[in-house]
């Protein structure tokens, strides 16, 4: 049965109780954790980036009443619930290996040599449970351990480097740094090269487009806009 709203009746805003660093606040239901914290009076100076679930800056951990699990999510993507105890974890201290991509090789020992602590993984899966992107974090660490760079790169592709995996790991692994190295190695040494890109770079280096660039540099914004709107759009090739 649909509930009728009587004309003139004041709509009560539904409020929920949340606890930020142990202190209780009442905030409107439906807000994200990030907006709820701002509603409660907190101001983000750091720990808030894109506000759209892509930058990984607003890692948050929380518990719900009557649930032993420690949940991990992004504050900008998660809606507050009544009885939520939460805190922000905007940064994770984690050592990053120093390497020169032009000098290192992609073999089955590269990842474990730069990050030997991955051999401490006991397959507890806590990292996977902590991942707000729902990646198979443990699986990509295990792939890294056995030198399967391509698999590690594939499984970690959507990592936003929020650091929650590293914060929760009992083996003190910095998963997201390992994954980043895997993706770099994959991109540079393993993935098939895009030949058309090499050709185009060569054309640019040989100055094929210099004249046109010079011409455009002298154009007014109006002329540029007109040119842009009238550009050829190549049909997608199969």
């Amino acid at each position: 049965m649909a509930r009728k709203s009587k004309k003139g009746e004041k709509q009560e805003m539904e409020m929920v109780r949340i606890y930020i660093m142990g202190k209780e606040y009442k905030v409107p239901a439906g807000l994200t954790i990030m907006k709820a914290m701002e509603y409660a009076g907190y101001r983000y100076i750091r720990g808030a980036g894109c506000r759209a679930g892509f930058c990984g800056a607003c890692a948050t951990v929380y518990r719900k009443e009557g649930d032993y699990k420690l949940h991990a999510d992004l504050a900008c993507q998660t809606t507050v619930e009544d009885g939520m105890w939460l805190v922000q974890l905007p940064f994770t201290p984690a050592n990053k290996a120093i390497y020169d991509m032009d000098k290192i090789e992609a073999d089955d020992k590269t990842l474990v040599n730069f990050y030997p602590e991955i051999a401490r993984c006991v397959s507890c899966n806590t990292c996977t449970k902590a991942c707000p992107q729902e990646l198979d974090v443990m699986d990509y660490i295990q792939a890294s351990l056995r030198g399967d760079i391509a698999k590690a790169a594939e499984l970690s592709f959507d990592c936003i480097q929020c650091g929650l995996c590293a914060m929760r790991c009992p083996a003190e692994i910095a998963h997201y740094h390992v994954a980043q190295l895997a993706r770099r190695l994959y991109g540079k040494y393993i993935a098939p090269k895009a030949r058309h890109l090499e050709e185009r770079v060569k054309e640019i280096e040989e100055g094929k487009f210099d004249e046109e660039m010079k011409k455009m540099m002298k154009m007014s914004v109006t002329q540029l806009r007109k040119l842009y709107n009238a550009r050829d759009i190549e049909p997608e090739e199969d």
Binding site: C121, V122, S123, C124, N125, M138, D139, Q142, L145, R146, P170
Partner: peptide, 21 residues
């Protein structure tokens, strides 16, 4: 899907963490 076996069967009977893998 598979993971490192744990490498050596732990002789510490009370440390179950090493049995998880």
């Amino acid at each position: 899907k598979w993971y490192c076996c744990g490498t050596v069967y732990s002789l510490a009977t009370d440390n179950l963490m090493y049995r998880l893998a």
